[in-house]
Design a protein around this nucleic acid. Structure first.
Length: 482
RNA sequence: GGCGACGUGGCCAAGUGGCAAGGCAAGGCUCUGCAAAAGCCUGAUCACCAGUUCGAAUCUGGUCGUCGCCUCCA
């Protein structure tokens, strides 16, 4: 079954056929680095992390570009976001950029989001942007006004095709100061002449100034992926005007189709309302990671289809954590059994077929527009049967245990990033800890054998207070840390 | 006002014509010295109304409600 993707451009699910067989070129709008990344960023970039992981797992050679916006992204007051932060903190704009770029990558690394292949910065690609603006002027779809350059949307009959907006229907929501310069209220800036106090500025044929927000993505996508590429991703909130304008600029400048498949991620709300600083419900990724494991945060975000909105709340995260623990408990039991098992021989339980069934369900879910909720459900159903198998007391061959573990590690780990790698802790302190816990377990076993339950319960309780959980199983006592 | 999404068991959430996945929570049970973990069982006719159809949560029209975007936002 081929991979199918819901293409926002045209609003239909389509078979995915990359331009070049076996290769996928993908561009995702990255963050503007003027503050710490929040859990809304996490939802978008976890989604595309899974997309790239799955594409690669499916055999595609993926080139993934995600920009860093460090210039030109203005507030509605007309101030540059980065410059305002710099002024507030009395630092250089590029200090701000460095600091929050690092914060962004730190957060993504912590969430297990793999780095894009190329992370170009807007400020490092001003010449490319100027060149593209010149092309648009040559083609007469842009015009110069008072040192600034605007895209003339009335020259582009396709303008609105992604977001389904008709120009006549748009209200003029433009800032007063620039309204007079524009031919149409909907025209957007390609280049802005810098006010004297604006210190992020570059020479251009039109004025000393800075590029508009939309042109960076067009210019960098062209530079690294060519005029036409396969997948363009981002958050749904940027569909207009940002994504729409990217299409207009690129297709007019390059005389070629821009992105062939548009994948836009649903927004995240907190307790039912949109996150914002003023409402005090702004949750950074670092905040969330203080409370929940990265795998839990990922599982929470992947338990809803990427295109749907999701609401972040304490209860929802707790529920995700519980669900994740059940899954991971089974993974741990499997790995422990696999390490201990010396059962060779055939698949006496007929379980290999069950594992294969889960894999098939998982892959067909992922092939259907990356349906992670169903993919996760396939792992949870497998988990129920794995638990039954491991608790049944019947011997399980190491071939079966290996197949189960491989499935968890590959589907849950490599693709979804919700199952930690099977790492044997080799650090000295970890080994000492293990030895001490094992000693206490043996002491407790003795007490239990002597029916000294007061003593055995005391050991268990005190270990629990220290964060070590004991569970008695038919074949012995196992332990885990909280 | 325009564009778009959505309304499925207590909560979250899959499901675009043919007996309503999965998770969390709840109750009962099994296993266990107890606990934990785990498993089993119990529960929805899919906002409402009217159509199309042999048959609809799924298609059409309408009503009510929620949300996003239209101005900065992943």
């Amino acid at each position: 079954m081929p991979l199918r993707i819901f293409n926002v451009l045209g609003r239909e699910k389509q078979d995915f056929e990359p331009l070049e067989p076996g290769h996928v070129t993908m561009y995702v709008c990255g963050p503007t680095v003027y503050d710490h990344p929040h859990i809304g960023h996490a939802k978008t970039y976890v989604a595309f992390d899974v997309v790239t992981r799955y594409l690669r797992h499916s055999g595609y050679n993926v080139l993934y570009v995600q920009n860093i916006t460090d210039v030109g992204h203005l507030l509605d007051s007309g101030e540059d976001r980065v410059l305002r932060k710099a002024a507030q903190t009395q630092s250089k704009p590029m200090q701000i950029v460095e600091m929050y770029t690092k914060s962004y990558f730190d957060a993504m690394d912590a969430l297990g989001v793999r780095r894009p292949d190329i992370s170009p910065r807007a400020s490092g690609h001003v010449p490319e942007q100027i060149k593209m603006i010149e092309k648009l002027l040559e083609k007469d779809v842009a015009y110069v006004a008072n040192g600034s350059v605007y895209f003339d949307v009335s020259k582009d009959p396709d303008y609105g095709k992604l977001s389904n907006r008709r120009l006549q229907e748009q209200e003029a929501g433009t800032r007063e100061a620039v309204r007079g310069e524009k031919r149409n209220p909907e025209d957007f800036a390609l280049w802005k002449k810098a006010e004297p106090e604006h210190i992020l500025r570059w020479e251009s044929p039109w004025s000393e100034g800075f590029p508009g927000w939309h042109i960076e993505c067009s210019a960098m996508a062209l530079k690294y992926l060519g005029p036409t590429f396969d997948i363009h991703g981002g958050g749904i909130d940027n569909i207009f005007p940002h994504n729409e304008s990217e299409i207009a600029q690129s297709e007019c400048a390059n005389d070629a189709e821009f992105a062939r498949y548009w994948m836009l991620v649903g927004s995240l709300t907190v307790d039912g309302i949109k996150m914002s600083k003023s409402l005090g419900n702004f949750i950074t990724i670092a905040d969330a990671l203080k409370r929940y494991r990265p795998e839990v945060i990922r599982m929470f975000m992947l338990s809803v289809h990427y295109s749907s909105p999701v609401d972040y709340s304490e209860e929802a995260l707790e529920a995700a954590a519980k669900g994740w623990e059940r899954l991971y408990n089974a993974v741990r039991l499997t790995r422990r059994a696999a390490n201990d098992s010396n059962e060779s021989g055939a698949d006496a339980n007929g379980f290999l077929e069950r594992v294969e069934q889960a894999r098939t369900a998982f892959f067909s879910a992922m092939d259907d527009d990356f349906n992670t909720p169903i993919a996760i459900a396939s792992l949870q159903e497998l988990t129920r049967d794995v638990n039954s198998l491991l608790n049944s007391g019947t011997p399980v061959s190491s071939a079966v245990l290996t197949a189960i573990n491989d499935t968890y590690s590959q589907l849950g780990g490599d693709i979804l990033g919700i199952v930690p790698a099977d790492e044997i802790e080799t650090g000295g302190s970890a080994q000492r800890e293990a030895a001490l816990v094992e000693l206490l377990i043996r002491m407790r076993a003795e007490a239990r054998a002597n029916k000294n339950y007061a003593e055995s319960d005391r050991i268990r309780n005190e270990l629990a207070e220290a964060g070590v959980i004991l569970e008695d199983r038919a074949d012995g006592t196992v332990w885990k840390t909280e």
